[in-house]
Design a protein around this nucleic acid. Structure first.
Lengths: 123, 123
DNA sequence: GATTTATTTCAATACTTCTTGTAATGTCAG
DNA sequence: CTGACATTACAAGAAGTATTGAAATAAATC
């Protein structure tokens, strides 16, 4: 997981349409839905939905597979896991017991962060 | 957690500057950093950083506290937890054993989803 | 082959966001 | 009070994004 992938994921989910699409497909994991089902469920014009689906696929959040003349979309749950890990990496700099995030949501990373000089700080 | 909050969070993290700021503050949780430290660490012009910090605070991802003439920013880790829960709510519609997301990352929600008619699907 | 259905592509417009520069606010030190 | 520092606020131009409508592709049905 690098910054570019993470940014692409967040850009994708920053749109209400795309967020709704992703959540719908998470609920319908692992089978997914075809484009027309998504369009009618969320009441989004097909051409507009196509635009957003393309963005989600490019970000890696959705996988697409052709089934006859239908296109079936599935949520990529593992990518979201990776993003969460990326976000909480080195949380609280590994200080024991200082972190508010439950351990189950974190993955530890071996790297230590560089401590920087706090130039003339109050108190 | 509602859609508006979730969208605001993703919009916030869709910028590389803001993503870097948030991750930096996650690493420095729970003490946080003052604006100047963030600016020098990430090499972002102070006025531009201020713009992004404001956005992050408004989204609820950061908390800010005045310390003399400094402003100290802290990551709001609980909000991120809420977003993750929101994203994975009703994951796989609760079907046992069909979900690729490890149980530790999920929170169950009691609501059931409406099953819809799959109009003339292949295979 | 012609028609219908599912979905995408393209182009144009409106809208929003990012960045930069400059001015303003507020706090601390002398 | 005055000057220096930390940070924010505002304004303007550039860049990116969303939405819409019309046309194109492509598979299934007749």
């Amino acid at each position: 997981m690098d910054q570019k992938v993470a940014t692409a994921v967040f850009e994708s989910l920053a749109s209400t349409v795309r967020l709704d699409v992703y959540r719908l497909l998470v609920r319908h994991a692992p089978d997914g839905l075809v484009a027309g089902e998504i369009a009618s469920t969320l009441d989004v014009p097909p051409n507009n939905l196509s635009f957003h689906l393309k963005a989600l696929v490019q970000a890696g959040l959705l996988a697409v597979e052709q089934q006859g003349r239908f296109l079936r979309y599935r949520a990529n749950l593992l990518l979201m896991q990776g993003v969460i890990t990326y976000l909480t990496a080195e949380c609280c700099a590994g200080k024991q017991g200082r972190c508010a995030v439950p351990a189950a949501s974190r993955r530890q990373s071996g790297a230590s962060i560089r401590t920087r000089r706090a130039s003339r700080l109050p108190s």
